Amino acid sequence: MPRRLLLATLFLAVAGCASPPPASIHTKDPASSTLQGDATRPAQAQWLRTELYFSVGPLEGKEGVISPTRWRTFLDQEVTPRFPDGFSVLDAYGQWRDHGAKEPERLGTKVIVILHENTPQRGKDIEAIRLAWKRITGDLSVLRLSQPAEVSF
């Protein structure tokens, strides 16, 4: 009996290997894909990786917490129009100790990661996002980290 089970398992494994790969969601002809990249995003451009850190409220208690709906609205109204080609959002835990405070605040945090060309307009877009969040929430700061990035599509 164990031999039949082993043969059946082996048959299913081999049959699975013969299956065609799943269709790509990004191209209609996966065979036409190359490693040449996306011509609309030139490799010679100077790229930055910018991370923006947003407090979405204290971990303990409900007062001051930004709801998931409010966060998505902010993304839809402030971030997506400025970076329609894409960005990533990460959930994080953060701590912040204001000057003179004995204990740090423990905060729910969202991190937006944007890969963008290093241009004055993109810098203005980043600053507009930071300013919008401060106006909406009353927060004093939105941490920005920008560093050069080698990007390939």
Rank of each mutant, 00 (worst) to 15 (best):
A13F: 14
P2Y: 10
L48A: 06
M1A: 09
F74G: 06
R72F: 10
R72S: 07
L143Q: 01
G64Y: 06
D139L: 10
S33M: 08
L7E: 06
G61S: 01
I66C: 10
R3C: 06
S88P: 01
E105F: 06
P84W: 14
S19F: 05
L5A: 11
Q147I: 07
L143W: 02
A31T: 06
V151E: 11
S33E: 07
W133F: 06
R122P: 03
Q95H: 02
G64A: 05
P81W: 13
A128E: 05
S88Q: 07
I66T: 15
A39Y: 05
A31G: 03
H99N: 08
A23W: 04
P68Y: 13
R130A: 04
P68H: 15
Q44V: 14
S55F: 07
T40E: 06
T80Q: 12
T119I: 09
Q95R: 02
D29N: 05
N118Q: 08
I136R: 02
I129D: 13
P120F: 02
R144A: 15
P42W: 11
V151Y: 08
H26I: 00
A128G: 04
Q147P: 00
I112N: 08
H99T: 12
Q44M: 14
L59W: 02
L6T: 03
E127T: 04
K28R: 11
D85G: 13
F153Q: 06
H116L: 10
P22G: 09
P120C: 01
L115V: 11
P22Q: 10
R97W: 08
A23Q: 03
T40M: 01
Y93R: 03
S152V: 02
V89P: 10
S24A: 08
V14A: 12
P68V: 13
E117D: 03
L75E: 00
A132I: 13
L107V: 02
I25N: 11
S32D: 13
V151S: 07
K110Q: 14
K134G: 03
A31V: 01
P22L: 15
Q121A: 09
A128R: 02
P81F: 09
K110A: 15
A132G: 02
A31E: 09
R122D: 14
G123K: 13
E150T: 12
L12F: 14
V89E: 15
W71D: 08
R106T: 04
K102H: 09
A31Q: 10
T119V: 08
V79G: 00
E127V: 01
Q147T: 09
R130V: 05
R97C: 03
